[in-house]
Design a protein around this nucleic acid. Sequence first.
DNA 1: AATGAAACTGAGACTCTGTCTCAATTATAT
DNA 2: ATATAATTGAGACAGAGTCTCAGTTTCATT
Lengths: 140, 140
Amino acid sequence: MEKQEFDAFISKKGLKLTRERDEIVSEVLCCQGHFAPDELFVQLRSKGSKVSRASIYRTIPLLVESGLIAEVERTDKHAHYEKVSKNSHHDHMICTVCGRVIEFYSKPLERLQESLCKRENFKGVRHCLEIMGVCENCDG
Amino acid sequence: MEKQEFDAFISKKGLKLTRERDEIVSEVLCCQGHFAPDELFVQLRSKGSKVSRASIYRTIPLLVESGLIAEVERTDKHAHYEKVSKNSHHDHMICTVCGRVIEFYSKPLERLQESLCKRENFKGVRHCLEIMGVCENCDG
DNA sequence: AATGAAACTGAGACTCTGTCTCAATTATAT
DNA sequence: ATATAATTGAGACAGAGTCTCAGTTTCATT
């Protein structure tokens, strides 16, 4: 269903609906969790797509602009994205064993941060909290 | 004073005290706040040093191992380091206008994170909270 | 259906951060 | 003074990402 929304976005911008964009959007929509540009490339290629890295990197900003995905700020040294869902803001717990990403949101945490900013006369705009550790599946 | 400590560390490891290491440690000790490897390189070169990038990158792990500096986890896509101080763990507020980094620590924040981890059966090991925004100097 | 302009594509050059190799140099124990 | 092991800079290399360019494709218009 969301595919049509992206197609509409592309048309409205006067851009063109190409096989490559089609393949990329489909792959993004069917994959779960976080993904990196190169993972997307490898997955598509493994499914027989002839798409190039350049097209992946060119299409990602369009997916972001259309609101279908958003960049995830991670301390990891390359880009990560995730599909945008209703409950937009959340932070992450990342399992260093299996790579699993747990999303969480805490109103008290948000409020606490606000008061800490106030104390420093700092106008907080956005934040990124990443808790690294071991998830219950891996803690044997 | 800390320079001697590093020299002692180097000697104890059976490594050598070279002009390049000397220049690098001195620069790190006199600079304030966070720094990136390439900044260090540019600063040293601008002061007339003939040090190479390779030596910067080779010396940084020694500085970390000696306890003089520590890597800072940032969502920025390259490495950042800071001098190690007494009050070790802290998080950061980063001004998107001037790049200023404000360190802060909050016990309630730490406790709240612990309880959030418990709720997810997640064994938190370390975390990184980065609040991006505008500092009081830049908020005009 | 044919056309044509503008958008798009893949290949590969390029940038940036960081690592590695190698021959020449240097610190240090003797 | 010497030997030897560590260190150095230059430059090749690697991975993520950007950019250019010539050839291709979409799509609105005939």
